[in-house]
Nucleic acid binder design. Sequence first.
DNA 1: ACCTGAACACCGTTCAAGT
DNA 2: ACCTGAACACCGTTCAAGT
Lengths: 225, 225
Amino acid sequence: MSKQDNGCGPRRGYHHGRLKDALIEAARHLVTERGPAGFTLSEAAKRVGVTAGAPYRHFTDRADLMSELARRGFEQFSQRLERAWDEGKPDAIAAFRRMGGAYLAFAREEPGLYSAMFGNVATLSTPDSGAAADRALAAIRNAAAAILRQHGASDAGARDLAFQIWAYSHGVAMLAVSGHLNPAHDADPTRILEEGARNLVEMSIRRALAGAPAPPPSPWGRPAT
Amino acid sequence: MSKQDNGCGPRRGYHHGRLKDALIEAARHLVTERGPAGFTLSEAAKRVGVTAGAPYRHFTDRADLMSELARRGFEQFSQRLERAWDEGKPDAIAAFRRMGGAYLAFAREEPGLYSAMFGNVATLSTPDSGAAADRALAAIRNAAAAILRQHGASDAGARDLAFQIWAYSHGVAMLAVSGHLNPAHDADPTRILEEGARNLVEMSIRRALAGAPAPPPSPWGRPAT
DNA sequence: ACCTGAACACCGTTCAAGT
DNA sequence: ACCTGAACACCGTTCAAGT
Protein backbone atom coordinates (compact mmCIF):
# COMPACT_ATOMS: atom_id res chain seq x y z
CA MET A 1 0.00 0.00 0.00
CA SER A 2 2.61 2.48 -1.08
CA LYS A 3 0.72 4.37 -3.75
CA GLN A 4 -2.64 4.78 -2.09
CA ASP A 5 -3.76 7.27 0.53
CA ASN A 6 -5.42 6.72 3.88
CA GLY A 7 -8.98 6.71 2.57
CA CYS A 8 -9.72 10.37 3.16
CA GLY A 9 -9.14 12.94 0.48
CA PRO A 10 -8.01 12.53 -3.13
CA ARG A 11 -5.58 9.78 -3.96
CA ARG A 12 -2.62 9.80 -6.32
CA GLY A 13 -2.64 6.71 -8.48
CA TYR A 14 -5.20 5.54 -10.96
CA HIS A 15 -6.74 3.03 -8.58
CA HIS A 16 -7.97 4.16 -5.22
CA GLY A 17 -7.50 1.03 -3.19
CA ARG A 18 -10.11 1.57 -0.53
CA LEU A 19 -12.77 3.35 -2.53
CA LYS A 20 -15.71 1.58 -0.92
CA ASP A 21 -14.76 2.50 2.63
CA ALA A 22 -13.70 5.98 1.61
CA LEU A 23 -17.07 6.62 -0.03
CA ILE A 24 -18.98 5.48 3.01
CA GLU A 25 -16.80 7.62 5.22
CA ALA A 26 -17.45 10.63 2.99
CA ALA A 27 -21.16 9.83 2.99
CA ARG A 28 -21.17 9.77 6.77
CA HIS A 29 -19.63 13.22 6.89
CA LEU A 30 -22.02 14.60 4.30
CA VAL A 31 -25.01 13.15 6.10
CA THR A 32 -23.79 14.65 9.35
CA GLU A 33 -23.28 18.05 7.75
CA ARG A 34 -26.38 18.29 5.61
CA GLY A 35 -28.76 15.51 6.59
CA PRO A 36 -29.70 12.36 4.69
CA ALA A 37 -31.45 14.31 1.92
CA GLY A 38 -28.45 16.56 1.42
CA PHE A 39 -26.16 13.66 0.67
CA THR A 40 -25.05 13.38 -2.91
CA LEU A 41 -23.23 10.54 -4.59
CA SER A 42 -21.39 12.91 -6.87
CA GLU A 43 -20.05 14.98 -4.04
CA ALA A 44 -18.96 11.95 -2.09
CA ALA A 45 -17.05 10.81 -5.17
CA LYS A 46 -15.54 14.25 -5.65
CA ARG A 47 -14.43 14.40 -2.01
CA VAL A 48 -12.44 11.22 -2.27
CA GLY A 49 -11.00 12.37 -5.60
CA VAL A 50 -12.81 10.09 -7.97
CA THR A 51 -15.18 10.44 -10.92
CA ALA A 52 -18.96 10.42 -10.50
CA GLY A 53 -19.19 7.06 -12.18
CA ALA A 54 -16.63 5.31 -10.00
CA PRO A 55 -18.96 4.47 -7.09
CA TYR A 56 -20.96 2.18 -9.36
CA ARG A 57 -18.12 -0.28 -9.30
CA HIS A 58 -18.85 -0.81 -5.57
CA PHE A 59 -22.52 0.03 -5.10
CA THR A 60 -25.47 -0.70 -7.31
CA ASP A 61 -26.88 2.76 -6.73
CA ARG A 62 -27.26 5.61 -4.27
CA ALA A 63 -29.76 3.69 -2.13
CA ASP A 64 -27.29 0.83 -1.84
CA LEU A 65 -24.65 3.11 -0.36
CA MET A 66 -27.20 4.63 2.01
CA SER A 67 -28.24 1.18 3.12
CA GLU A 68 -24.66 0.21 3.83
CA LEU A 69 -24.20 3.44 5.77
CA ALA A 70 -27.31 2.68 7.80
CA ARG A 71 -26.07 -0.83 8.46
CA ARG A 72 -22.82 0.44 9.90
CA GLY A 73 -24.77 3.01 11.87
CA PHE A 74 -26.89 0.29 13.44
CA GLU A 75 -23.81 -1.72 14.25
CA GLN A 76 -22.19 1.22 16.02
CA PHE A 77 -25.49 2.04 17.71
CA SER A 78 -25.89 -1.48 19.04
CA GLN A 79 -22.37 -1.48 20.38
CA ARG A 80 -22.91 1.75 22.25
CA LEU A 81 -26.15 0.48 23.74
CA GLU A 82 -24.51 -2.75 24.81
CA ARG A 83 -21.52 -0.96 26.28
CA ALA A 84 -23.81 1.35 28.24
CA TRP A 85 -25.75 -1.65 29.51
CA ASP A 86 -22.48 -3.25 30.62
CA GLU A 87 -24.09 -6.54 31.60
CA GLY A 88 -26.49 -4.77 33.91
CA LYS A 89 -23.91 -3.58 36.41
CA PRO A 90 -24.20 -2.54 39.16
CA ASP A 91 -27.94 -3.18 38.90
CA ALA A 92 -30.45 -3.44 36.08
CA ILE A 93 -32.15 -0.12 36.78
CA ALA A 94 -28.95 1.92 36.82
CA ALA A 95 -27.68 0.15 33.72
CA PHE A 96 -30.98 0.70 31.96
CA ARG A 97 -30.85 4.41 32.67
CA ARG A 98 -27.34 4.53 31.24
CA MET A 99 -28.61 2.81 28.13
CA GLY A 100 -31.36 5.38 27.71
CA GLY A 101 -28.79 8.13 27.96
CA ALA A 102 -26.63 6.41 25.38
CA TYR A 103 -29.60 6.08 23.04
CA LEU A 104 -30.40 9.78 23.14
CA ALA A 105 -26.73 10.77 23.02
CA PHE A 106 -26.17 8.78 19.83
CA ALA A 107 -29.15 10.38 18.12
CA ARG A 108 -28.05 13.86 19.11
CA GLU A 109 -24.39 13.39 18.26
CA GLU A 110 -25.13 11.89 14.88
CA PRO A 111 -28.56 13.21 13.90
CA GLY A 112 -27.93 12.67 10.21
CA LEU A 113 -26.83 9.09 10.67
CA TYR A 114 -29.69 8.38 13.04
CA SER A 115 -32.20 9.82 10.57
CA ALA A 116 -30.67 7.78 7.78
CA MET A 117 -31.00 4.65 9.89
CA PHE A 118 -34.64 5.16 10.74
CA GLY A 119 -35.64 7.39 7.88
CA ASN A 120 -37.00 5.60 4.90
CA VAL A 121 -38.37 2.11 4.74
CA ALA A 122 -36.91 1.27 1.38
CA THR A 123 -33.55 2.80 2.22
CA LEU A 124 -32.66 0.26 4.83
CA SER A 125 -34.87 -2.70 4.19
CA THR A 126 -31.99 -4.81 2.98
CA PRO A 127 -31.55 -8.03 4.96
CA ASP A 128 -28.17 -6.94 6.34
CA SER A 129 -29.25 -3.60 7.75
CA GLY A 130 -32.39 -5.22 9.08
CA ALA A 131 -30.30 -7.71 11.04
CA ALA A 132 -28.18 -4.92 12.47
CA ALA A 133 -31.32 -3.09 13.56
CA ASP A 134 -32.58 -6.24 15.23
CA ARG A 135 -29.43 -6.40 17.30
CA ALA A 136 -30.16 -2.98 18.79
CA LEU A 137 -33.66 -4.07 19.68
CA ALA A 138 -32.27 -7.27 21.18
CA ALA A 139 -30.07 -5.21 23.50
CA ILE A 140 -33.12 -3.35 24.76
CA ARG A 141 -35.12 -6.55 25.15
CA ASN A 142 -32.30 -8.15 27.06
CA ALA A 143 -32.22 -5.22 29.47
CA ALA A 144 -35.98 -5.27 29.89
CA ALA A 145 -35.94 -8.94 30.78
CA ALA A 146 -33.17 -8.37 33.34
CA ILE A 147 -35.13 -5.60 35.00
CA LEU A 148 -38.25 -7.70 35.30
CA ARG A 149 -36.31 -10.65 36.69
CA GLN A 150 -34.39 -8.52 39.15
CA HIS A 151 -37.72 -7.35 40.55
CA GLY A 152 -38.93 -10.87 41.05
CA ALA A 153 -41.31 -10.77 38.12
CA SER A 154 -41.68 -13.03 35.15
CA ASP A 155 -39.87 -11.78 32.07
CA ALA A 156 -42.76 -12.83 29.85
CA GLY A 157 -43.58 -9.18 29.27
CA ALA A 158 -40.02 -8.24 28.31
CA ARG A 159 -40.81 -8.20 24.64
CA ASP A 160 -43.65 -5.75 25.01
CA LEU A 161 -41.72 -3.58 27.42
CA ALA A 162 -38.81 -3.51 24.99
CA PHE A 163 -41.04 -2.35 22.16
CA GLN A 164 -42.52 0.33 24.39
CA ILE A 165 -39.14 1.57 25.51
CA TRP A 166 -37.81 1.49 21.98
CA ALA A 167 -40.76 3.38 20.51
CA TYR A 168 -40.61 5.91 23.32
CA SER A 169 -36.87 6.46 23.00
CA HIS A 170 -37.22 6.74 19.25
CA GLY A 171 -40.00 9.29 19.59
CA VAL A 172 -38.07 11.43 22.05
CA ALA A 173 -34.93 11.18 19.94
CA MET A 174 -36.69 12.12 16.73
CA LEU A 175 -38.54 15.02 18.28
CA ALA A 176 -35.32 16.22 19.89
CA VAL A 177 -33.32 15.93 16.69
CA SER A 178 -36.00 17.63 14.61
CA GLY A 179 -36.22 20.47 17.11
CA HIS A 180 -39.80 19.84 18.21
CA LEU A 181 -38.63 19.20 21.73
CA ASN A 182 -36.42 22.03 22.89
CA PRO A 183 -35.23 22.66 26.42
CA ALA A 184 -36.11 26.34 26.08
CA HIS A 185 -39.74 25.33 25.72
CA ASP A 186 -39.56 23.61 29.08
CA ALA A 187 -39.19 20.26 27.38
CA ASP A 188 -35.73 18.91 28.03
CA PRO A 189 -35.40 15.70 26.03
CA THR A 190 -33.21 14.03 28.64
CA ARG A 191 -35.74 14.67 31.39
CA ILE A 192 -38.70 13.64 29.24
CA LEU A 193 -36.95 10.41 28.29
CA GLU A 194 -35.95 9.58 31.86
CA GLU A 195 -39.36 10.16 33.39
CA GLY A 196 -41.38 8.46 30.68
CA ALA A 197 -39.07 5.45 30.52
CA ARG A 198 -39.23 5.13 34.29
CA ASN A 199 -43.02 5.17 34.12
CA LEU A 200 -43.10 2.50 31.45
CA VAL A 201 -40.70 0.30 33.38
CA GLU A 202 -42.41 0.73 36.73
CA MET A 203 -45.85 0.05 35.32
CA SER A 204 -44.55 -3.02 33.56
CA ILE A 205 -43.12 -4.35 36.80
CA ARG A 206 -46.38 -3.68 38.61
CA ARG A 207 -48.40 -5.55 36.00
CA ALA A 208 -45.99 -8.45 35.95
CA LEU A 209 -46.09 -8.76 39.73
CA ALA A 210 -49.89 -8.50 39.68
CA GLY A 211 -49.79 -11.58 37.49
CA ALA A 212 -51.61 -10.13 34.52
CA PRO A 213 -49.08 -10.27 31.70
CA ALA A 214 -51.56 -9.27 29.01
CA PRO A 215 -54.45 -7.28 30.44
CA PRO A 216 -57.56 -7.45 28.27
CA PRO A 217 -58.71 -4.37 26.36
CA SER A 218 -60.68 -2.79 29.13
CA PRO A 219 -61.05 0.94 29.71
CA TRP A 220 -57.97 1.98 31.58
CA GLY A 221 -57.27 4.64 34.15
CA ARG A 222 -57.16 2.24 37.07
CA PRO A 223 -55.51 -1.18 37.07
CA ALA A 224 -57.75 -4.13 36.28
CA THR A 225 -59.01 -5.34 39.65
CA MET B 1 -64.07 31.17 -13.56
CA SER B 2 -65.04 29.98 -16.97
CA LYS B 3 -61.64 29.40 -18.50
CA GLN B 4 -59.94 27.58 -15.65
CA ASP B 5 -60.22 23.98 -14.56
CA ASN B 6 -60.90 22.51 -11.14
CA GLY B 7 -57.31 22.59 -9.93
CA CYS B 8 -56.43 19.06 -10.91
CA GLY B 9 -54.86 18.24 -14.24
CA PRO B 10 -53.73 20.51 -17.06
CA ARG B 11 -55.62 23.69 -17.68
CA ARG B 12 -56.59 25.30 -20.96
CA GLY B 13 -55.85 29.01 -20.83
CA TYR B 14 -52.58 30.80 -20.34
CA HIS B 15 -53.23 31.53 -16.69
CA HIS B 16 -53.98 28.71 -14.34
CA GLY B 17 -56.09 30.50 -11.78
CA ARG B 18 -55.49 28.30 -8.76
CA LEU B 19 -51.91 27.28 -9.37
CA LYS B 20 -50.84 27.51 -5.75
CA ASP B 21 -53.51 25.18 -4.45
CA ALA B 22 -53.15 22.87 -7.43
CA LEU B 23 -49.41 22.54 -6.83
CA ILE B 24 -49.87 21.71 -3.17
CA GLU B 25 -52.51 19.18 -4.05
CA ALA B 26 -50.18 17.58 -6.59
CA ALA B 27 -47.38 17.63 -4.03
CA ARG B 28 -49.59 15.85 -1.54
CA HIS B 29 -50.28 13.09 -4.04
CA LEU B 30 -46.63 12.75 -4.99
CA VAL B 31 -45.58 12.62 -1.36
CA THR B 32 -48.18 9.95 -0.69
CA GLU B 33 -47.04 7.91 -3.67
CA ARG B 34 -43.30 8.21 -3.37
CA GLY B 35 -42.46 9.70 0.01
CA PRO B 36 -41.16 13.18 0.85
CA ALA B 37 -37.82 12.55 -0.85
CA GLY B 38 -39.52 11.39 -4.03
CA PHE B 39 -41.39 14.62 -4.46
CA THR B 40 -40.22 16.77 -7.32
CA LEU B 41 -41.16 20.34 -8.05
CA SER B 42 -40.88 19.76 -11.78
CA GLU B 43 -43.23 16.83 -11.75
CA ALA B 44 -45.77 18.65 -9.64
CA ALA B 45 -45.68 21.47 -12.20
CA LYS B 46 -46.01 19.02 -15.08
CA ARG B 47 -48.98 17.31 -13.44
CA VAL B 48 -50.95 20.49 -13.24
CA GLY B 49 -49.96 21.38 -16.78
CA VAL B 50 -47.54 24.18 -16.15
CA THR B 51 -43.87 24.91 -16.85
CA ALA B 52 -41.13 24.08 -14.37
CA GLY B 53 -40.54 27.75 -13.65
CA ALA B 54 -44.16 28.61 -12.91
CA PRO B 55 -44.16 27.50 -9.23
CA TYR B 56 -41.64 30.23 -8.43
CA ARG B 57 -44.38 32.79 -8.86
CA HIS B 58 -46.06 31.30 -5.75
CA PHE B 59 -43.27 29.71 -3.71
CA THR B 60 -39.76 30.92 -3.06
CA ASP B 61 -38.37 27.42 -3.56
CA ARG B 62 -39.01 23.73 -3.12
CA ALA B 63 -38.63 23.90 0.65
CA ASP B 64 -41.25 26.63 0.81
CA LEU B 65 -43.81 24.41 -0.89
CA MET B 66 -42.91 21.53 1.41
CA SER B 67 -43.33 23.77 4.41
CA GLU B 68 -46.76 24.87 3.25
CA LEU B 69 -47.71 21.24 2.67
CA ALA B 70 -46.54 20.38 6.18
CA ARG B 71 -48.52 23.29 7.59
CA ARG B 72 -51.72 22.05 6.01
CA GLY B 73 -50.89 18.56 7.18
CA PHE B 74 -50.58 19.76 10.76
CA GLU B 75 -53.86 21.64 10.46
CA GLN B 76 -55.66 18.53 9.25
CA PHE B 77 -53.89 16.44 11.87
CA SER B 78 -54.94 18.76 14.69
CA GLN B 79 -58.53 18.72 13.49
CA ARG B 80 -58.64 14.94 13.47
CA LEU B 81 -57.16 14.75 16.95
CA GLU B 82 -59.64 17.29 18.26
CA ARG B 83 -62.56 15.57 16.57
CA ALA B 84 -61.49 12.24 18.08
CA TRP B 85 -61.21 13.85 21.49
CA ASP B 86 -64.74 15.23 21.09
CA GLU B 87 -64.60 17.32 24.24
CA GLY B 88 -63.74 14.28 26.30
CA LYS B 89 -67.06 12.50 25.85
CA PRO B 90 -68.24 10.22 27.30
CA ASP B 91 -65.25 10.23 29.64
CA ALA B 92 -61.67 11.39 29.40
CA ILE B 93 -60.16 7.91 29.23
CA ALA B 94 -62.36 6.70 26.40
CA ALA B 95 -61.86 9.94 24.49
CA PHE B 96 -58.11 9.74 25.00
CA ARG B 97 -57.97 6.24 23.60
CA ARG B 98 -59.91 7.44 20.57
CA MET B 99 -57.37 10.21 20.11
CA GLY B 100 -54.51 7.73 20.21
CA GLY B 101 -56.22 5.69 17.54
CA ALA B 102 -56.73 8.80 15.42
CA TYR B 103 -53.05 9.69 15.78
CA LEU B 104 -51.85 6.34 14.53
CA ALA B 105 -54.51 6.19 11.82
CA PHE B 106 -53.43 9.53 10.39
CA ALA B 107 -49.79 8.48 10.25
CA ARG B 108 -50.65 5.20 8.56
CA GLU B 109 -53.13 6.63 6.09
CA GLU B 110 -50.82 9.44 5.05
CA PRO B 111 -47.31 8.19 5.77
CA GLY B 112 -45.73 10.56 3.27
CA LEU B 113 -47.50 13.58 4.66
CA TYR B 114 -46.73 12.56 8.22
CA SER B 115 -43.05 12.10 7.39
CA ALA B 116 -42.99 15.46 5.67
CA MET B 117 -44.51 17.05 8.76
CA PHE B 118 -42.03 15.58 11.18
CA GLY B 119 -39.19 14.88 8.83
CA ASN B 120 -36.65 17.60 8.53
CA VAL B 121 -36.11 20.44 10.94
CA ALA B 122 -35.40 23.05 8.32
CA THR B 123 -38.27 21.93 6.14
CA LEU B 124 -40.98 22.96 8.52
CA SER B 125 -39.37 25.42 10.83
CA THR B 126 -41.31 28.32 9.41
CA PRO B 127 -43.37 30.19 12.00
CA ASP B 128 -46.67 29.17 10.39
CA SER B 129 -46.07 25.45 10.33
CA GLY B 130 -44.63 25.66 13.83
CA ALA B 131 -47.85 27.20 15.09
CA ALA B 132 -49.90 24.49 13.42
CA ALA B 133 -47.75 21.86 15.08
CA ASP B 134 -48.24 23.52 18.42
CA ARG B 135 -51.98 23.21 18.00
CA ALA B 136 -51.69 19.43 17.73
CA LEU B 137 -49.63 19.33 20.89
CA ALA B 138 -52.15 21.58 22.62
CA ALA B 139 -54.90 19.08 21.84
CA ILE B 140 -52.90 16.34 23.54
CA ARG B 141 -52.08 18.55 26.51
CA ASN B 142 -55.72 19.48 26.89
CA ALA B 143 -56.69 15.82 26.99
CA ALA B 144 -53.96 15.01 29.48
CA ALA B 145 -55.17 17.75 31.82
CA ALA B 146 -58.75 16.50 31.59
CA ILE B 147 -57.69 12.97 32.48
CA LEU B 148 -55.74 14.10 35.52
CA ARG B 149 -58.60 16.30 36.72
CA GLN B 150 -61.20 13.59 36.17
CA HIS B 151 -59.18 11.35 38.44
CA GLY B 152 -59.11 13.93 41.19
CA ALA B 153 -55.49 14.84 40.62
CA SER B 154 -53.86 18.16 40.00
CA ASP B 155 -53.26 18.88 36.34
CA ALA B 156 -49.85 20.36 37.09
CA GLY B 157 -48.23 17.38 35.43
CA ALA B 158 -50.36 17.65 32.29
CA ARG B 159 -47.57 19.25 30.33
CA ASP B 160 -45.10 16.47 31.03
CA LEU B 161 -47.68 13.77 30.43
CA ALA B 162 -48.56 15.38 27.11
CA PHE B 163 -44.92 15.37 25.99
CA GLN B 164 -44.58 11.75 27.02
CA ILE B 165 -47.71 10.74 25.16
CA TRP B 166 -46.71 12.74 22.12
CA ALA B 167 -43.20 11.31 21.98
CA TYR B 168 -44.53 7.81 22.49
CA SER B 169 -47.22 8.15 19.82
CA HIS B 170 -44.69 9.65 17.46
CA GLY B 171 -42.25 6.84 18.07
CA VAL B 172 -44.85 4.14 17.50
CA ALA B 173 -46.15 5.93 14.41
CA MET B 174 -42.71 6.37 12.89
CA LEU B 175 -41.66 2.80 13.57
CA ALA B 176 -44.94 1.56 12.16
CA VAL B 177 -44.70 3.71 9.04
CA SER B 178 -41.07 2.78 8.44
CA GLY B 179 -41.85 -0.89 8.80
CA HIS B 180 -39.79 -1.52 11.93
CA LEU B 181 -42.89 -2.47 13.85
CA ASN B 182 -44.81 -5.07 11.95
CA PRO B 183 -47.73 -7.15 13.22
CA ALA B 184 -46.18 -10.26 11.71
CA HIS B 185 -43.26 -9.86 14.10
CA ASP B 186 -45.68 -9.98 17.01
CA ALA B 187 -45.55 -6.23 17.31
CA ASP B 188 -48.92 -4.79 16.38
CA PRO B 189 -48.55 -0.99 16.45
CA THR B 190 -52.09 -0.45 17.67
CA ARG B 191 -51.61 -2.75 20.63
CA ILE B 192 -48.18 -1.35 21.47
CA LEU B 193 -49.55 2.17 21.38
CA GLU B 194 -52.57 1.32 23.54
CA GLU B 195 -50.68 -0.49 26.24
CA GLY B 196 -47.79 1.94 26.49
CA ALA B 197 -50.05 4.99 26.50
CA ARG B 198 -52.17 3.41 29.21
CA ASN B 199 -49.06 2.80 31.28
CA LEU B 200 -47.89 6.37 30.90
CA VAL B 201 -51.31 7.74 31.81
CA GLU B 202 -51.84 5.44 34.76
CA MET B 203 -48.40 6.11 36.20
CA SER B 204 -48.92 9.83 35.78
CA ILE B 205 -52.19 9.64 37.71
CA ARG B 206 -50.54 7.62 40.46
CA ARG B 207 -47.76 10.13 40.84
CA ALA B 208 -50.13 13.07 40.81
CA LEU B 209 -52.31 11.47 43.49
CA ALA B 210 -49.22 10.66 45.54
CA GLY B 211 -48.56 14.36 45.56
CA ALA B 212 -45.17 14.26 43.95
CA PRO B 213 -45.58 16.22 40.72
CA ALA B 214 -41.88 16.29 39.91
CA PRO B 215 -39.99 13.42 41.53
CA PRO B 216 -36.29 14.17 42.01
CA PRO B 217 -33.73 12.29 39.92
CA SER B 218 -33.49 9.25 42.13
CA PRO B 219 -32.88 5.71 40.93
CA TRP B 220 -36.25 4.39 39.88
CA GLY B 221 -37.83 1.00 39.88
CA ARG B 222 -40.05 1.68 42.84
CA PRO B 223 -41.97 4.90 43.54
CA ALA B 224 -40.25 7.44 45.78
CA THR B 225 -41.46 6.61 49.26
C1' DA C 1 -49.94 39.70 -12.34
C1' DC C 2 -48.94 35.32 -14.18
C1' DC C 3 -46.78 32.12 -17.17
C1' DT C 4 -43.44 30.44 -21.06
C1' DG C 5 -38.90 29.29 -23.01
C1' DA C 6 -34.37 29.05 -22.79
C1' DA C 7 -30.52 28.74 -20.05
C1' DC C 8 -27.17 27.12 -16.21
C1' DA C 9 -25.30 24.20 -12.71
C1' DC C 10 -25.99 19.92 -10.73
C1' DC C 11 -27.29 15.06 -10.03
C1' DG C 12 -27.98 9.83 -10.89
C1' DT C 13 -26.82 6.46 -14.01
C1' DT C 14 -24.72 4.02 -18.06
C1' DC C 15 -21.04 2.50 -20.90
C1' DA C 16 -17.31 2.35 -24.03
C1' DA C 17 -12.66 3.22 -23.49
C1' DG C 18 -8.43 3.56 -20.87
C1' DT C 19 -4.78 1.68 -16.97
C1' DA D 1 -10.45 -5.46 -11.65
C1' DC D 2 -10.94 -0.66 -11.31
C1' DC D 3 -11.44 3.94 -12.94
C1' DT D 4 -12.11 7.83 -16.62
C1' DG D 5 -14.72 10.57 -20.00
C1' DA D 6 -18.50 11.44 -22.37
C1' DA D 7 -23.22 11.04 -22.67
C1' DC D 8 -28.41 11.18 -21.36
C1' DA D 9 -32.41 12.28 -18.73
C1' DC D 10 -33.78 14.86 -14.99
C1' DC D 11 -34.01 18.46 -11.42
C1' DG D 12 -33.85 23.20 -9.04
C1' DT D 13 -33.55 27.82 -10.08
C1' DT D 14 -33.25 32.25 -12.73
C1' DC D 15 -34.76 35.56 -16.01
C1' DA D 16 -35.92 37.89 -20.14
C1' DA D 17 -39.79 37.67 -22.94
C1' DG D 18 -44.61 36.84 -23.87
C1' DT D 19 -50.11 37.19 -22.58
